[in-house]
Design a binder for these strands. Structure first.
Lengths: 301, 301
DNA sequence: CACACTTACGATATTCGTAAGGATT
DNA sequence: AATCCTTACGAATATCGTAAGTGTG
């Protein structure tokens, strides 16, 4: 029993004629005849009564009609679905992104992607950088976006751009007059930052530790938006990735590059080797790289 | 995309190895390889990543696994069902029978049939003889049992036995002493019979009309059991098919042959030409003929 | 005798298995 | 070197189309 036979049977059952069913199937009459005969032999009995002048379904044939119809419909649906999937007309893709990126640059790429592939669902998980890597490693998502991890193992990293950390100050802050701010000058004021274990916090701490600078944290929070707001309200100063610049400026803070020591990390896409990606994910990777090509975050006003 | 390819894909997806899948499918490794390749080409993309040492599903392949599993299960269920149907291990058969037969002889045949084919459901419609023929003609049932119809058209009739009508009397009735009773003597008493349009009523009326005997009906009812009870309660006399003899005697009535004119009709199976019957129905026809072969209803006590 | 399906048979296409090739551990 | 999958190619199998056969109206 195979698909052709079922399709042939249905054609005969619908047209009630071998001749017209044969033309409908682009097949010669005898070929169709043999196909039906073979189906009958396989199943163990007659499906049709042929009386040279008239075709009729046997009761068993009658029983097969709805079964065959259902079977064929399901078969064709499955085939279509798979073809659509490969043609990027259907599918899902899950991306994990560190929150700072998800809230700043990512939407632009998603928009670009959606224009090209409107039928692919995109799910975004905005989670801590460590979780991003973990989700990629566990195949919970196909693509992750974060700072370049120290431990890639078998994962691939596609850099998107270089991010330099910047200082943010309340308006009318004494340091506002300086075009670049040193850590030493900055830390004279109350320092606000993210709570552990965010990657931003980790980078700041390790960088300062290496430079032999002591860090006293006045306040910390889980979300950059909170930190930005605290700064703009004059509670203190902070250092954030440059990609948060727009957001913090909108909140009324002032941004200045931090130097000595400068913190700079590559941001990029973490994923399984490209050959292991779904077509939809590979396309997303291309869109990401394309969208952020030549992205240079201004660290100066 | 065909069944073999889907089955091959599932085998590979389960074993995660072309080699073991090939042996499981009783196929050479290269043949399996080509089959998968052909499937992939048909669908338009890779389903598996082959790295000589390790096989993995692509995301699209991952999506296909449950689809393929479902598809294959449904396919095999359908195939099994049809095979069972032809092997008489599955199926339904509907029979229409006139009530007098359904309540007397039919159960024996059904029992015989059920012993041979325990997995076939049998539905019995006990309806008036005219309706029996109509249901067969409309293919509502495959087999009908009734008196031989006058108008068969393209239907077949397989006689089971000859039924002679008998008179039934209350106990201690004046006519009880006679071994055979004439219509003339019988009609001296209150006559009870079935309501129109039962075939029994019709036959009695047409027979008497042809013989020039006038019929006055004292009481009539829809069911033979009612008529039998009325007789045994002494409300009058009746004439019923001999096959009702046991039932009426159980009710306490006395049976005697009626002669002058004798009413005798063949009882048998009405159906579409045998070649149009389902295997299950053809088997039932055989059982019916077999069960009632050499059935001679005693018209004498 | 015309029509519709079946059977027969040679041709084509597909699928299969063996053998050789390539890549990874 | 051993293992596993792919590619190559000749062989077996299945399917197809043309032509002849059969039976019915």
């Amino acid at each position: 029993m195979n698909i052709k036979q079922v399709r042939a049977f249905l054609a005969v059952a619908q047209t009630m004629s071998f001749a017209s069913a044969a033309t409908q199937l682009h097949l010669s009459q005898p070929a169709l005849s043999l196909s039906i005969k073979s189906l009958e032999d396989n199943l163990g009995g007659k499906l049709l009564t042929r009386t040279t002048r008239h075709i009729a379904l046997t009761p068993e044939g009658e029983a097969l009609v709805p079964i065959a119809r259902r079977l064929l419909a399901q078969w064709e649906n499955a085939e279509d679905e798979m073809k659509q999937r490969f043609a990027l007309q259907l599918g899902k893709i899950a991306i994990a992104s560190m929150p700072s990126f998800a809230a700043s640059l990512l939407p632009k790429a998603i928009r670009n992607y959606h224009v090209s592939y409107p039928n692919i669902q995109v799910a975004i998980h905005d989670v801590l950088s460590d979780v991003v890597v973990e989700m990629v490693r566990n195949n919970q998502v196909e693509l992750g976006i974060s700072f370049e991890p120290t431990n890639l193992l078998e994962l691939s990293f596609y850099p998107l751009y270089e991010d330099r950390f910047i200082a943010i100050l309340p308006k009318n802050h004494p340091l506002e007059t300086q075009q670049t701010i040193s850590w030493k000058a900055l830390l004279e004021y109350d320092f606000i930052t993210l709570q552990r274990p965010s990657s931003v916090r980790t980078m700041i701490e390790s960088t300062l530790s290496n430079a032999g600078i002591e860090l006293n944290v006045a306040f910390d929070a889980h979300q950059l938006a909170t930190v930005g707001r605290m700064v703009s309200e004059g509670m203190g100063v902070a250092v954030v990735p440059a990609l948060c610049r727009q957001q913090t400026e909108e909140q009324g803070a002032v941004c200045r590059p931090v130097i000595e020591p400068e913190i700079s990390r590559r941001v990029g896409v973490i994923c399984q080797p490209r050959s292991n990606l779904s077509i939809a994910a590979a396309a997303m990777l291309d869109v990401l790289i394309d969208t952020y090509a030549n992205t240079h975050l201004d660290s100066q006003t």
